[in-house]
Nucleic acid binder design. Structure first.
Ligand code: FES
Ligand code: FES
Lengths: 139, 139
DNA sequence: TCTAAAGCGGACAAAATAAGTCCGATTTAA
DNA sequence: TTAAATCGGACTTATTTTGTCCGCTTTAGA
């Protein structure tokens, strides 16, 4: 239903948090505790962010995660793709067989066009705009 | 995962079909047959479109559905809202209790802002742009 | 007036996806 | 050597989506 997954919400919270604690290493346990997130769940999300290079992971004791680039360089699309994989409006975009209507579908092409425009649009939401509103809580 | 539901796909197919058969009354059975859609399912979708006024329903024998306005006046947002209800990126937008993180959530406000922009954007995709590509198949 | 063809709507069942849990393995600072 | 951390696979549970069933109402036409 065009809804953000919990995984994406968790990723955004974590990234925003790390932005505030600039350059500090933060562990999954800390984040999970602070934001009431199931920690194993958040662990998976952080791993996904690390695999996509949005964050750097530090192994071993006193390890954790760190932003690998400033939030200034990140957009919503980056986060979505990192945690949910490529953005597809319809299933048959990945595997044609997955749509029973594939052969007779009159909407596939126009939907693909929309998907591409939406993809661009998702890249226009900069994470740095998340700063003000979240910071305002602290004032 | 930000994917169009089958219900929305079915609605788009039906609307496009009705646009081509301008003003003719078309039954769920016909549509379901032509596009390989489970007919009870399509029935529900058409009912939703009728409730939202996008189509007119004609009861009784030889009944069916008809566009109540030209496709020219419809946008993707209309269809989404008709079949899935109001567009919400996060659950707590409807019911705060539904997000465990509600109290500590640092992303709610910025996400709401994005939701509103996306809502506008969805209203910019006109269904008439679906015509060309689908018509081209018939040439 | 009867019948068959349609839409209506509620309840249900099945399937798919998302969310969350568990656990053993590895890495590394102290 | 130990404890604190990430890693990743397998698994379970919850939620949502998709599809089905069935009895009801409406209406054109024989
Ligand atoms: S969108 Fe997949 S077949 Fe139409
Ligand atoms: S979006 Fe619902 S609590 Fe953050």
């Amino acid at each position: 239903m065009l809804r953000l997954s919990k995984r994406v919400e968790y990723a955004l919270m974590a990234l925003l948090h790390m932005d505030e604690e600039a350059d500090q290493v933060v562990s999954v346990a800390e984040l999970a505790d602070q934001y009431d997130i199931p920690s194993d769940m958040l662990g998976k999300v952080m791993q996904a962010l690390a695999r996509s290079g949005l964050v750097k992971s530090i192994h071993g004791a006193h390890g954790g995660y760190q932003l690998s680039t400033s939030l200034d360089n990140l957009v919503l699309g980056d986060v979505l793709e990192a945690v949910e994989g490529p953005f597809r409006l319809v299933k048959c975009q990945e595997t044609p067989e997955s749509c029973d209507q594939y052969k007779v579908c009159p909407i596939r092409e126009p939907v693909l066009a929309i998907q591409n425009q939406l993809l661009d649009y998702l890249a226009s939401f900069e994470l740095k705009t998340f700063r003000e509103t979240s910071k305002s809580k602290k004032i």
